[in-house]
Design a binder for these strands. Structure first.
Lengths: 242, 242
DNA sequence: TTCCGTCAGTGCGTAAACACACAAACCTGC
DNA sequence: GCAGGTTTGTGTGTTTACGCACTGACGGAA
């Protein structure tokens, strides 16, 4: 850790530099210069995020993992940004791995300090913050899912997500349409959907899909479904959260 | 469009329902019930988002497109959320296509009305909103990129993003490491990196990479690089934006 | 009833990336 | 300069999904 005196002068982090001078002066006492070394893991998924980091010349990668060996970078943070935006969103538990991809310095700030900045906000504002975080998690998770999982599993996941939202066992969707959602060919959906039908999990004809066996469908889907679902429920306070 | 009187009673949208009664009452005059039909496109990329939508039993898909024929759903919004979170983040231009994936009703609100909610915020808060949006765009774009583009193009994109952040032409990164970032095998990186070296765009040995031809590298990368880069720059007001 | 457009199933060749195995090149420390 | 670990290149066979072409099945409109 370096001395705080090194923070005099204009900030190297461009996000901090974009603040009005007064605002930056106000933050200064809360900031602390640190060295980050290649390979350092700042936080693992499910860790409590104790500090947010504003990289100077260091780089922090945000990784999503769907299995032991399968990791994917979903975001890269350099001097243009801040690692730990979820704290700002009111969620201090990490969903990603924070990996130092480039050695260098960064300015860090206690998570509480940033949290306090949002104390005076109204309910709508706070709720939208939580929702933003939930949506960002959904996007990250499906990014990894689309990268690593088969069309079959992804189709099952997608149908479950749709099923949750329509609130009925029947819904109108062609294979052509689903192929655009999953980013695969129509023929690929035909094959995957045929398989789900063969297993009696769903039944469909000319764009009308009926969910026959919800539990079975959940088994056919990757557990990305559950991760996304839990996130979406917990932000509304419907589940115990984590 | 339906009459506003239909809005009496508790909101069907769970996000709105999670608000304290008083807060919801305050918003009520700004809300308007609308019917959404399957296939409706609420906004295209680059459109100005005029309204945010809180689905009741309708579903709105957020799509990212990397080419005419290649679309990918990056987010699904049902009664648990709101479509148009970027407005809340202070960006009223859409980066995605908003497609109605399930017919039904939704409550909508003028974008300005939501924007006004954030008028009193401090600089740091506003800036972090903008950054959140930028990061979300980065995640969405790389999700689509990872789905559709070859390892070669993605490796070039990733190296450019790293190059931008280290501020030097040399950086230390093994193929093993990069394979974890891109979510591919180490051998795949070996092949792709070998190709870039053959073209004299980069030069590397035992983890030390040197960028030889930045322009050429940009050509080898998919234009996802430019999209992400522009987004990251514009939120800091460094570019003219769009 | 017939026609036509939409929706779904299938087969064949190709391409990209995977898994595994192994070898070569290189670096560090003894 | 030798040993052992790390980094990189390459080869073979397999898997997954793509691209294209075509057929069949169904349903609403004339």
């Amino acid at each position: 850790m370096l001395t705080t005196t090194a923070l005099r002068g204009p900030p190297a982090n461009r996000l901090l530099a974009a603040l009005p001078k007064k605002e930056y002066q106000r933050l200064l006492p809360k900031l602390e210069l640190v060295n980050l070394s290649f390979g350092d893991i700042l936080f693992e998924p499910e860790d409590v995020i104790t500090h947010v980091h504003f990289p100077n010349d260091s780089i922090i990668s945000l990784l999503s993992a769907v299995a032991e060996r399968s990791t994917l970078e979903v975001g890269m943070v350099g001097n243009e940004g801040m690692a730990g935006i979820s704290v700002f969103m009111g969620v201090d538990v990490s969903r990603n791995q924070f990996l130092v991809q480039g050695s260098g310095t960064a300015v860090r700030m206690k998570a509480e300090a940033l949290g306090n900045e949002s104390n005076h906000l109204g309910s709508l504002h706070r709720l939208l913050h939580r929702y933003s975080h939930s949506l960002m998690t959904q996007i990250s998770q499906s990014a990894a899912c689309n990268r690593f999982h088969t069309v079959d599993a992804r189709l099952a996941r997608w149908m479950l997500m749709t099923h949750d939202r329509v609130g009925a066992d029947e819904f109108q969707l062609t294979q052509e349409f689903m192929s655009n959602m999953l980013g695969v060919r129509r023929e690929g959906v035909s094959k995957a959907a045929g398989e789900l039908q063969r297993k009696k999990l769903i039944q469909y004809s000319r764009g009308l899909i009926t969910v026959l066996n919800r539990k079975g469908l959940e088994k056919a889907a990757c557990n990305c479904y559950r991760i996304i679902k839990d996130e979406g429920d917990s932000f509304l306070g419907l589940s115990t959260g984590r």
